[in-house]
Nucleic acid binder design. Sequence first.
DNA 1: GTGAAAAATGTAAGCGCTTACATGTTTTCA
DNA 2: TGAAAACATGTAAGCGCTTACATTTTTCAC
Lengths: 374, 374
Amino acid sequence: MRGLQNAVEPPTLLTIATKYLDDGGTGKHPRHLVKVNKNKAIPTLADVARRAKVSTATVSRCLNSPDQVVGETRERVLAAVADLGYAPNFGARALAAKQTNTVGAVIPTMENAVFARGLQAFQEELVRHGKTLLVASSAYQARLEDEQVRALVARGADALLLIGYDRNPKLYEFLEKRSVPTLVAWSYEEGHAQPCIGFDNTSSMVELARLVIGQGHRDIACISAPTATNDRARGRVEGIRLAMAEAGLDPRDLHLTEIAYGIETGETAFRQTLAAAPNTTVVMCGNDVLAIGALRAAKEMGLRVPADISITGFDDIEIAMLAEPALTTVHVPHREMGRRAAVMLINMLRDNETPRSVELPTDIRLRRSLGPVQ
Amino acid sequence: MRGLQNAVEPPTLLTIATKYLDDGGTGKHPRHLVKVNKNKAIPTLADVARRAKVSTATVSRCLNSPDQVVGETRERVLAAVADLGYAPNFGARALAAKQTNTVGAVIPTMENAVFARGLQAFQEELVRHGKTLLVASSAYQARLEDEQVRALVARGADALLLIGYDRNPKLYEFLEKRSVPTLVAWSYEEGHAQPCIGFDNTSSMVELARLVIGQGHRDIACISAPTATNDRARGRVEGIRLAMAEAGLDPRDLHLTEIAYGIETGETAFRQTLAAAPNTTVVMCGNDVLAIGALRAAKEMGLRVPADISITGFDDIEIAMLAEPALTTVHVPHREMGRRAAVMLINMLRDNETPRSVELPTDIRLRRSLGPVQ
DNA sequence: GTGAAAAATGTAAGCGCTTACATGTTTTCA
DNA sequence: TGAAAACATGTAAGCGCTTACATTTTTCAC
């Protein structure tokens, strides 16, 4: 930021001299350097005002609401701004104006394409409205997420985008107390104080599971991220169970393995699953990354997909389509979610009111990795 | 941010009453609301100080250099902080301390896994040092990048991470003038004022091209991102040419197609390439994403890879290994690059000096998509 | 126990903006 | 033509921190 200069540069001869001489010996400024505008000190509003022979208020108005200033004056000020290479000091502006024009987002990780995509669209839309994005990631850890949220708020985030609803109620209280508009994405659930934009993880998975069951599968296994602190993962597992119950199967028969997201972990979980439940005919995975791992493990084990075993994913990231065989999965409109999340948050900031939550549709992408039971 | 509350909430009865009564009728505060700590006004440092019965300086020290405060006092202050739910005001802190503890990064896009990965590692390392990440993306457009860099600086970024060296010299001047420490990543080139961390795009590609030529390929085509404003893309193409010259081939015979990065664009470019240069036996792509597109197009065209045509990529993202056939590519240590970039930038911020640039090694991942000429 | 040095804490001056209100100047129109 | 309204600009009070320097308290060698 602008003042940095003073902090990082060793005093030059000029500034040192200034230090002791420039207050005219009155002793009124015993401790602070007086700015010397040569010597590349960074210009302030006051410098601009002086040069343009107007008050600081007028300069400020020129910059923030130019139509309040008459043409001639404005030009003079703008010329001074250009001459001096002036740019406003961020901290001062934030302090005085009580907003930073910065929006924070805490996501599990940028390494999963779903978040990278969503965030990219989110950021693009923010820029369009003159906002900047602060990013932090939680690595799917509640404690880290908590810290990051607080850090972003402390860093002046005017509003926040969070993924999913599961988190410490204290954190929501904190956000409430600080009146930080917060939007939840990647989930759609009724009955929360915070608005959301997302999709219904449960019913999306119900739909996919119906399709799976329709193919004759009865021995279903699921590889999921840990469900205890992840409402999206929980919803997806629940979806499978609901569809099973609906089809007259016992939901308790679902063979569930919980493991962190990752290709390697997906491989591991797949092996474990088949070791523990050898009759499994389909492995429904909590996301595409796990499914890719499962696919790879299946290949290594000499199993043909889908002849010997079917595998499904969730998200429809690029890999899903490129895998061999291509992955049956649930397509989620990540980019749209990101873009619209930005719009909602900007409106919340402007109108200071809670908007209606938005449910986005998902759809099944039926590809070769899912086949009928042999 | 903190003071937002005043700005967005309509005055309540309580605050209205306060407005006119609370200065004890002295008229000393005719225009400003006096804070009412009930009624969810946001606590300030002064509130904490009052409650802990210490000075604001002590509270500040507790928060910023706790070891300067004796145990008992510190606990009392921290208790007050917790009771009040205090968190420092960002703008005030930035203004007074002349730094934001915020680092900016402008990358082409988060949607390419290489940047997502690098940025993820970058961010994790920043967090470890108490810094926050400001992100913007340029979509590979110079003008947009220029704007974003200026925006991040205006938003108080203490330091900046940029991708590649190619950009308007004016922008470098600007950064120089504002003394914003800047690190260039994804490139390694000598002779620039800004330090960098990255790899030598040219020599990495030379190595891969040697391997290709070693397999007997003579009719080489290349699909690259536009080279005019992208030193990395330019270096890679140059690498192919160098290797050709070295092998006694005419570098001008390289059939080059420039197109934006993307799977679809890769497909398109591949078709164009084979239409224009049907004797091509290998298509070397500027990155993995283009290569995946090429691979797909080849399949659609009924070409066997590598029997009929070889294809190579660059980056070694996840998809490269999962593709069918798996992609021969140049492995780049993106995560390490991101992590170390953060460390370098933090050191630059601390020591206020330009560090030595760091060259990271790359290595070839030879996989099935490259084979000998038939 | 004493005095000096070290450690802890307090005081208060900014940091560079925004903006409520005050003041001065030009329009408008009866 | 003159009073009111509309407009342009100025004045100066914060915004909530950090930190240089001042003051008070503790520590410790002798």
